[in-house]
Amino acid sequence: MVEFRVFRFDPEKNKEPEFQSYEFDPYKGMTILEGLYYILENLDSSLAFRSSCREAVCGSCAMHINGIYRLACKTQIEILKSPITIRPLSHLPVIKDLVVDLTPFFNHFKEIKPYLIPKESPPEKEYIQSVKEREKINDWLDCILCGACYGSCPVCAQDDKYLGPHALLKALRFVDDSRDGGAKERIAFVTQNSGVFRCHTIFNCREVCPKDLDPTKAIAKLKLKAVFKKF
């Protein structure tokens, strides 16, 4: 038997959130996400949560599970101590239960012009990019926009204008791309008030990122580039 203690909030019913407990027998290899589906389909049809890929690539299911931000689909029940407490991502408005409003998170992402600004007009075939140049962006590519870093960052909690680890990571992804010509403009943008210098290097984002990305390092790199004007 395992017990899930799930954060519940229904704007149509509750003023305050509450925790609700569910008990069931997990099978071997069952994930937290599969547990939530078990509850929805057998115990409580009112439960709300997001999911899609069930394989840790779509970013839908980041939640706060037994004290740590994790992807529900990638987390096995058997590695956790029961009761398992499940909450939504922090400091984003809760829509219902484990579903939060990610609008601020996505808006910040859009602010950094998250698309290639070509350095030169495109050749007839592909831009030539050496293996080394490609390697330079490799560490910044895999963000699945799950929001775990944003939810865990105390600066995001205090300052809703702060761009956030995900957006800054993406900015570096383009600054470091040999095909992008927007570095100057990008650095100028991320060094404004709500940009890189708001980061206090607390490392939460790096710790929680389910894709093992290092936004802290990306932010540090952007800071260096800004200071030494090397881009």
């Binding site: 997001r50 899609s52 890929c53 779509c58 970013g59 839908s60 990610l102 699945i144």
Partner: peptide, 9 residues
């Protein structure tokens, strides 16, 4: 679902 959650990914 949000476009980036689509199966294509």
């Amino acid at each position: 679902i949000h476009p980036m959650r689509s199966h294509s990914g």
